[in-house]
Design a protein around this nucleic acid. Structure first.
Length: 332
DNA sequence: ACCTGTCAAGTCTGG
DNA sequence: CCAGACTTGACAGGT
């Protein structure tokens, strides 16, 4: 099995390369010259895209082929007071450049819209802004020229005291989405609400691929269900994507500490990950692993060192040479 | 240069 | 019905 690793949004190694610079609404509304303020927003977005491209170049250099884009590329993009603003047209070339680089160097890109995107909500205004936010993310992927392998990962959402009803509402709302948006959505198990097996059942109903978050599964699994029991069904949710040639994606992170087991640690513990890869998924041809650690890309490089050590100690893995962020796993 | 409170958005809990 | 927690990078305003 070929395993690739990726990280989220920003690098702790590249200096002054934030892709998430912003302007708050408070500041925006204090500016008297509105056209100038909009130009300022546009130039911040341009800078964010430029830094995104720098990050992708860093990824190529470091042999990282999985990367999550920040949702904050365009500040205030979907804010209700800026509906007359079209940030897309003037940024079309910058988006295209980012997408072209990712395609040329085979970097798998995704978004993870913030927790304000809640398709299980009973509130019409929240549903409307969720659809707007999803459309915004999909629009950016389309402007990058990326095919449906580039996805938006979201959670099922809140439960509002009745998980069954919330799940039904999610399915109903999902069914109302434009196909070009629905086809881009993957669902991730939550650390508080919808568990892995509940999320999987919903994925099967709406035809969305499931992203298994190992950490969330560890802290939100009241039924004590083994990942092993779910994995074949999870794989099937990926079958109809890109002719069955899109590797499933999982998330890995480690508890911050015993007092805050849901928090994310600086680095990732390699052992649960190796256990999953070699015991649960060794027969899966390829898996992409998104590492969600505070130390971002640095945690990837440390993980590779840890994996090399485990390989030397006899773990059934083969870490590829050089800076390659890639591992081959055998059955344990 | 550095520190602290604040920031568009949602949901949950507890008062 | 409302305040605060959750969580997080970066702004804004202060020293």
């Amino acid at each position: 099995m070929k395993v690739r690793f990726g990280y989220v949004a920003m690098s702790v190694q590249l200096e002054n390369a934030s892709p998430s610079k912003t302007m708050t609404m408070k500041t925006f509304s204090k500016l008297a010259d509105r056209p100038a303020a909009l130009r300022r927003l546009e130039s911040i977005a341009r800078e964010n895209l430029h830094n995104t491209l720098r990050l992708l170049k860093h990824n190529r250099y470091m042999d990282v082929h999985v990367y999550r884009l920040t949702s904050k590329l365009i500040p205030l993009a979907t804010h209700g007071d800026l509906e007359d603003w079209d940030p897309y047209t003037p940024l079309a070339e910058a988006f295209a450049e980012v997408g072209a680089f990712a395609k040329e160097h085979e970097i798998r890109l995704s978004f993870h819209p913030d927790h304000f995107t809640v398709l299980s909500t009973p509130r019409p205004e929240v549903y409307a802004s969720s659809v707007k936010d999803l459309a915004h993310h999909v629009k950016m992927l389309e402007m990058m020229g990326l095919d449906e392998r580039a996805t938006c990962n979201i959670h099922v959402g809140g439960t509002y005291g009745d998980k069954e009803a919330a799940g039904r509402r999610f399915v109903e709302h999902f069914g109302e989405l434009e196909p070009r948006i629905a086809r881009r959505i993957t669902l991730e198990n939550d650390d508080k609400t919808f568990t892995a097996s509940e999320t999987l059942a919903i994925c099967e109903r709406v035809g969305a691929p499931m992203v298994l978050d190992l950490h969330h599964h560890a802290v939100n699994n009241p039924g004590g269900i083994e990942a092993e029991a779910l994995w074949p069904r999870i794989l099937r949710t990926w079958d109809r994507r890109y002719g069955g040639n899109l590797p499933p994606k999982i998330h890995a992170s480690s508890p911050k500490n015993a007092g805050d087991p849901r928090g994310h640690a600086d680095y990732v513990d390699p052992l649960p990950l190796v256990d999953f890869l070699t015991r649960v998924a060794p027969d899966t041809p390829a898996v992409d692993v998104m590492i969600e650690a505070k130390r971002k890309d640095e945690s990837l490089f440390r993980l590779m060192e840890d994996l090399k050590r485990l390989e030397a100690d006899g773990a059934p893995i083969a870490v590829t040479g050089g800076a390659g962020i890639e591992v081959y796993c055998k059955r344990s």
